[in-house]
């Protein structure tokens, strides 16, 4: 049973354009573009002042991600920058590729789920590292409750586990929906007048979407890391970590 076909959503039509396993050509292209960018950026690293554009962009990207981790997680969050840098560069480059080429890895839900799996597993791994296995599992049951209220803890535990699983769906579908949705809208606009690419007018908005989606994925990862590792930090910050992720999730 295909739920989307049953609902008769436009996404069902998009399925006809599936390029199958050729998507890994585009995935490899993302890999290559990032490596070329890294190579160009590294050329100027020996200088005292970074003057070349790629190096300055890399520096700003690093500072942006570092600032984001420090703001969301705290000073302890700097160690997650390498992972977030990988996520951000992969998603952003993949998204941007969709503006110029016919396909993009981030418009394939299967690939996005792969990245979401790695993100969620990484968050759990860091949570276990920060709190220990038992501490991390206890973390899912919410605050300590006594008496018959322990049933509520059990309920919270189940809800939290489901919530963790749903992070896979929320992360991957959000990216997939935005990028693939953008492609569909552009194709639809292009088909209004044959031969006139009206959809090109959407490029600035799509570029903005590419940027925002890369940002959303990374900031949500920061938020998940903050929640998962919060008990490993100072207790005095516990309250902050408990509230900020919810706010960030709401904004996202």
């Amino acid at each position: 049973m295909d739920l989307l076909q049953q609902l008769n959503l436009p996404l069902a039509e998009a399925a006809e354009k599936e390029i199958g396993w050729n998507i890994f050509f585009y995935s490899g292209l993302v890999f290559a573009i990032v490596l070329v960018f890294a190579t160009l950026a590294k050329k100027d690293l020996k200088n005292r002042v970074f003057t070349s554009l790629p190096t300055r962009l890399a520096e700003h990207l690093y500072l942006f991600l570092e600032g984001m981790t420090v703001n969301v997680i705290g000073p302890n969050g700097k160690k997650y920058v390498p992972f977030l840098l990988a996520i951000w560069t992969f998603i952003f480059t993949g998204n941007i590729m969709g503006l110029l080429l016919q396909a993009t890895p981030t418009a394939d839900w299967s690939l996005n789920i792969g990245m979401a799996v790695i993100t969620v597993v990484y968050v759990q791994y860091e949570g276990i590292k920060a709190n220990g296995l038992l501490g991390h599992i206890k973390h899912f049951s919410g605050p300590k409750l006594g008496g018959f209220m322990i049933l509520v803890s059990g309920l919270i535990f189940v809800v939290e586990i489901v919530s963790e699983c749903m992070k896979l769906v929320s992360l991957s579908l959000r990216l997939y929906g935005n990028i693939e949705g953008g492609h569909i809208v552009r194709s639809s606009l292009d088909s209004i007048i044959a031969g006139v690419p009206i959809g090109g007018l959407l490029l600035p908005i799509k570029f903005f979407t590419c940027l925002i989606q890369a940002f959303v994925w990374t900031i949500l990862t920061c938020t998940y890391l903050s929640i998962a590792t919060s008990h490993g930090h100072d207790d005095e910050h516990e309250g902050d970590h408990g509230h900020q992720p919810a706010l960030t999730e709401a904004h996202a």
Binding site: M1, D2, L3, L4, Q5, L9, L11, A12, A15, E18, W21, I23, F24, S27, G28, F31, V34, P82, F83, A86, F90, P105, D108, W109, S110, L111, I113, G114, M115, V117, I118, Y176
Partner: peptide, 23 residues
């Protein structure tokens, strides 16, 4: 169930591998 979304777990597993190399 997810045919409309073109879910292919083979691609998912492969992309996990690609991303594990990428990081």
């Amino acid at each position: 169930m997810f045919a409309g979304l073109q879910l292919d777990l083979g691609k998912t597993i492969t992309n996990i591998g690609v991303f594990l190399l990428f990081i």
